[in-house]
Design a protein around this nucleic acid. Structure first.
Lengths: 202, 202
DNA sequence: ACTCTTGCTGACCGAGAAGTCAGTAATTAT
DNA sequence: ATAATTACTGACTTCTCGGTCAGCAAGAGT
């Protein structure tokens, strides 16, 4: 008859709060996000928020760390474990990866970092170490492997994997700002990969 | 002896306030920017702010419109008026333009748009019409002129000037987030232009 | 010189949101 | 059953900041 008004679930709370916070930050950005709104979506009281995260800022950092890393690691794993020729790899898994990023939570986190990064240098460091650097290094490694195997010639692309990712960045920003105006993301990235392969092929 | 406490300068105020606002928004972003801080830098009282701009939001829009357009128009003009072969144009003025954007106020405005665009759709429209669309169209026109002249072959790049600008976007975001970590912007863009020309040359 | 107009000031107001804490009730220990 | 523990609640406090307005004084008009 008398249902308990709440359950104690110490273990699950951090994850649930973090997920709720992600969705609020994604919609509103950091500054406009209300801690009380996060509490509501997580199904807890405002007070409880402060038992798990000392401040709103700490909550923000937890979001970037948990949510993103969790979803990114699967992606990076497939990147590391495939065994294809370098060209097949560029045209297959890497291209697919690039196409899906602009619509993924990573794009949201990039927005938060662009907007708030200045005030959270340690968060930027963390993101650099655990996401960007990892990804760039992985791509570089593949290009270099292609060079070693004689598939590719030595070009600036070996040192600048950013060349590969540039259209992905543009597509991300495009969607964040100009969501409505359509951009042919597929064709954009296909073209870039075509161009790169033509350019570096031995 | 008795210096006047202030001067009346109705004409100059909007510009001065707008410039001050730009510098504060650039440093703090929209949400964290304080109207009083803008007033201080503009050398006026907080009250005066509201005689020239009805709300903080209107001030924000004025910044995007005035500051950016003013500085962008000179750039776009040189883009339109040069008379070089298409390849020379890509390797010369356009490349120079792309190299200087990531360090210019445009990058700052892009940050503001990414962070706050969701809540200011009309601002995004304005920026689209007066900056992005203009720029993209100008580039498309040049590529197509090259095709007509027989310098280039018909490729996706004719419809997707975004291919050209992609590394510029990456460099911009890179600097906004990872200011410290160096990125060889010159080499990145040189490579992209090299690649593109090799790809589209007839 | 003496109004008169109006550009300008700065103390003030009120909304709203981050963060607190005394108390409550779910769970565990005895 | 009863007591002890602690996860949890939500009303409250405090403070910040966008926006207001009554009055002041700079400069124009006469």
């Amino acid at each position: 008859m008398n249902e308990p008004r709440y359950q104690r679930r110490k273990e699950d709370r951090p994850q649930e709060i973090t997920d709720a916070a992600y969705s609020v930050f994604a919609e509103k950005g950091y500054a406009a996000a209300r801690v009380e709104e996060v509490a509501k979506r997580a199904g807890v009281s405002k007070g409880l928020m402060y038992l798990y995260f000392r401040t709103k800022e700490e909550l923000f950092k937890a979001v970037v760390k948990n949510v993103v890393i969790r979803r990114l690691d699967t992606l990076l794993n497939t990147l590391e474990t495939t065994e294809l020729s370098s060209e097949e790899f560029l045209r297959g898994p890497l291209l697919d990866f690039m196409k899906q990023v602009p619509g993924s939570p990573i794009a949201i986190v990039i927005r938060l970092l662009i907007a708030e990064g200045q005030r959270h240098p340690d968060l930027v460091d963390y993101y650099w170490n655990h996401v960007v650097n990892k990804g760039l290094t992985a791509i570089s490694r593949f290009i270099r492997r292609g060079v070693e195997r004689g598939e590719f010639r030595e070009t600036a692309v070996s040192d600048l994997p950013q060349v590969v990712l540039a259209p992905m960045m543009l597509a991300m920003i495009w969607r964040l700002i100009f969501a409505k105006r359509e951009l042919d993301v597929e064709r954009l990235m296909d073209t870039q990969i075509d161009m790169i392969i033509a350019y570096i092929k031995a």
